[in-house]
Amino acid sequence: MSQTPSTDVQGSTPDGGDPRGPFGKVWLFLRQVVDELKKVVVPTRRELTNYTLVVLVFVIIVILIVSGLDWMFSNGAELIFGDGSTEAPSALAVEGDGAGE
Results as ranks from 00 to 15, higher is better:
21 G>H: 04
78 E>S: 11
87 E>F: 04
91 A>L: 03
20 R>C: 01
62 V>D: 13
95 E>Q: 12
92 L>P: 02
75 N>Q: 14
94 V>W: 02
26 V>K: 14
56 L>H: 14
81 F>E: 02
15 D>L: 10
27 W>I: 01
35 D>K: 11
23 F>M: 14
39 K>G: 06
86 T>D: 04
59 V>Q: 10
26 V>G: 00
50 N>L: 12
28 L>I: 03
35 D>G: 01
65 I>M: 08
95 E>K: 13
82 G>N: 05
63 I>N: 14
12 S>G: 03
95 E>G: 09
70 D>Y: 13
6 S>T: 13
80 I>G: 04
15 D>E: 09
8 D>C: 10
81 F>L: 10
94 V>F: 06
46 R>V: 05
97 D>E: 10
64 L>P: 01
43 P>I: 07
12 S>D: 03
84 G>Y: 01
72 M>G: 03
14 P>L: 08
85 S>M: 01
84 G>C: 05
84 G>S: 06
71 W>P: 01
12 S>A: 13
49 T>H: 12
29 F>H: 11
39 K>A: 10
39 K>Q: 11
13 T>S: 05
63 I>W: 08
73 F>C: 09
7 T>R: 08
93 A>L: 11
41 V>D: 09
58 F>S: 15
17 G>A: 05
91 A>I: 00
66 V>H: 06
46 R>G: 03
22 P>M: 10
12 S>N: 04
56 L>Q: 15
17 G>K: 05
88 A>F: 05
56 L>M: 15
52 T>M: 13
91 A>T: 02
96 G>C: 06
61 I>R: 14
29 F>S: 11
79 L>Q: 03
88 A>E: 08
69 L>P: 02
96 G>K: 11
91 A>D: 02
7 T>L: 09
94 V>Q: 04
18 D>I: 02
87 E>C: 02
41 V>N: 10
83 D>R: 13
83 D>K: 11
30 L>D: 07
18 D>K: 03
51 Y>I: 07
59 V>S: 09
31 R>F: 00
92 L>Q: 12
24 G>Y: 03
8 D>K: 14
94 V>D: 05
71 W>C: 12
6 S>V: 07
69 L>S: 06
29 F>W: 08
43 P>R: 10
92 L>M: 06
76 G>K: 01
19 P>K: 03
82 G>Y: 05
80 I>A: 12
56 L>Y: 12
98 G>S: 11
91 A>P: 02
53 L>P: 00
85 S>V: 00
77 A>Y: 12
74 S>V: 11
22 P>T: 06
59 V>L: 12
39 K>M: 05
69 L>W: 02
24 G>N: 02
60 I>T: 15
29 F>N: 08
8 D>A: 15
39 K>D: 07
15 D>M: 05
60 I>D: 13
57 V>A: 15
56 L>W: 05
51 Y>Q: 11
61 I>V: 15
85 S>D: 08
76 G>R: 03
84 G>D: 04
14 P>Y: 07
53 L>T: 12
64 L>R: 03
35 D>V: 00
54 V>F: 12
85 S>L: 03
37 L>H: 09
21 G>S: 09
58 F>L: 14
73 F>N: 08
